[in-house]
């Protein structure tokens, strides 16, 4: 394959980014069609699920594959970095502002639940690793 890191790295990130954006777009569409709500459920669920995977994958990759930085570029920088988004999260909060309690729940709830899901991901990865190392 392509050996030159100047070309190899952007290709790896791009592949992750393509998968990430398509997941965000189509999962978002599906969520909006299935949950008829004024709450921006699509970006909310995508961001907190992304945080869960971030906790899980970053722990697994750091412990199990420390010598494979390309997996980090593909899965963390490319895929999860693109799957989750900050700009739309802020835009949803700033533009609506007609139902203050809902917007505050979304605005403050996203990072708090995100942190919570990240920690669950990390714990789950640690449990997975300890089961694997025992067997």
């Amino acid at each position: 394959m392509v050996k030159n890191p100047q070309i190899r790295i952007p290709i790896i990130i791009s592949l992750g980014a393509i998968a990430g954006v398509l997941c965000r777009y189509y999962i978002g569409l599906w969520l909006l069609q299935n949950f008829k709500t004024q709450f921006p459920i699509d970006i909310f669920l995508i961001n907190i699920s992304g945080c869960f995977f971030m906790g899980f994958l970053s722990t697994i990759l750091a412990r199990k594959y420390p010598l494979h930085p390309e997996l980090v570029l593909l899965l963390i920088t490319g895929f999860l970095g693109t799957y989750t988004t900050f700009s739309t999260y802020e835009l949803n909060t700033a533009v609506n502002l007609n139902n203050l309690s809902r917007d505050l729940l979304y605005w403050i709830g996203s990072p708090i639940l995100g942190l919570f899901c990240l920690e669950i991901g990390i714990k789950l990865a640690q449990i997975t690793l300890s089961i694997k190392s025992r067997s």
């Binding site: 971030m54 906790g55 963390i76 970095g81 988004t85 700009s87 739309t88 990240l118």
Partner: peptide, 20 residues
């Protein structure tokens, strides 16, 4: 621009991971 570029340029998961 909005879904593709800006959606990918900004990231929520890294922000949470960095905080943690």
């Amino acid at each position: 621009i909005l879904i593709g570029f800006l959606g990918a340029y900004t990231t929520f998961s890294s922000y949470i991971l960095d905080t943690s």
